[in-house]
């Protein structure tokens, strides 16, 4: 038996109403894209739910529950939709169910054409102000603090991230911090050698993220370009034009200036597909099909892909913060943990 809390349902309903009002008023078009996809952007760190479509006469074909609506929303942008937003269900498999994770979750994703990641900071501030219920505590409200990843590393651990771009240098820095993880057995290390990205995350999660000040929301900008994603490179730096928003100590949103160069997108696809294949060999995880025509959307001469910035924000987490809950179970009427 579930315990039905009317207030919880109302809080979500109000948030969605305000979200729609806000973006519609700003001239964004609300869209709905498939949850069941025939191909996904390769992301080797995300496990997906695999299913199949059975045609009565033509056999079955693989389908995937989307881990984010990015793959479809970008096709709409390519076709000339202009600025768009969506409230969408997303799915991530094989994640530990914790206070801030449920395998099925609700995401707000919006794309603003002719904008970059810096413009999106202001858009995110406007959005939070527009939807925050009366009495929302100051530490969740704008103005946001903005710091680069480089600044955070410098302040927290006294390291110059620009100087640590090779695995060797980062490894040395990690051992000086005692972050080489004394707990982990060396047998495990041989099985899956540490990558630059996982070492970066180890240091960030051990020494930097836990001490992020929580008196105001914080935007961390300029993530290392070595963390592969479809954000544009920041010219003349080893960084991507990408930020993440932390509020109340929780990672709430992720934003890019979107990569629009077809060659670079294909390159990301190639590298990420290879990494996904490697992971699949190790763990037996499923590899989603690639949306084959996807990079073609960025090559059209007639409809050049518009420069734009996209932001994804976790709505369940936002409800948790606004409502003062400590666990996603407080805001999801049917949390998966209740069925395990």
């Amino acid at each position: 038996m579930i315990t039905f809390n009317r207030e919880t349902a109302l809080q979500r309903s109000r948030l969605y109403t305000r979200t729609r009002e806000h973006f519609t008023r700003k001239g964004y078009l609300e869209v709905e894209t498939p949850i069941l996809a025939d191909g996904l952007i390769p992301e080797p760190t995300i496990e997906v739910f695999e299913t199949a479509f059975s045609h009565p006469f033509k056999g079955t074909t693989a389908r995937w529950l989307v881990p984010s609506p990015e793959v479809h929303m970008k096709q709409l942008l390519a076709a000339g939709s202009g600025s768009i937003f969506q409230i969408s269900k997303c799915f991530r498999n094989s994640e530990q169910i914790g206070r801030y994770h449920n395998p099925e979750f609700s995401m707000l994703e919006w794309y603003t054409v002719e904008a970059d990641y810096k413009d999106s900071i202001a858009h995110a501030e406007e959005y939070i102000s527009a939807v925050a219920p009366r009495g929302t505590p100051e530490h969740l409200l704008p103005p946001f603090r903005v710091k680069t990843m480089h600044e955070l590393w410098h302040t927290a651990v006294g390291l110059d991230l620009d100087e640590l771009q090779t695995l060797e240098k980062l490894r040395k820095a990690a051992s000086s911090l005692g972050a080489a993880s004394s707990v982990v057995s060396s047998a495990a290390a041989e099985h899956a050698p540490e990558t630059w990205e996982s070492l970066f995350n180890r240091i960030f999660l051990t020494h930097i993220e836990p001490d992020i000040p929580q008196d105001k929301p914080l935007i961390i900008t300029d993530y290392p370009a070595r963390i592969e994603c479809l954000a544009a490179n920041k010219k003349g730096t080893p960084c991507k034009e990408r930020w993440e928003l932390y509020a109340g100590g929780i990672e709430l949103a992720n934003c890019y200036t979107e990569e629009t160069d077809a060659d670079r997108i294909e390159e990301v696809f190639r590298r990420e597909s290879a990494a996904a294949a490697l992971r699949s060999i190790r763990s037996g995880s499923a590899i989603p099909d690639l949306p084959q025509e996807f990079p073609e959307h960025f090559r059209s001469r007639e409809h050049p892909f518009p420069p734009c910035s996209g932001t994804a924000l976790g709505l369940d987490r936002l409800l948790l913060l606004f409502g003062g809950y400590t666990d996603l179970e407080g805001v999801i009427l049917f949390p998966l943990s209740a069925t395990m």
């Binding site: 530990q96 995350n201 963390i227």
Partner: peptide, 8 residues
């Protein structure tokens, strides 16, 4: 799960 990272 850091954004774009594996699970920790």
């Amino acid at each position: 799960n850091p954004g774009k990272g594996s699970a920790f």
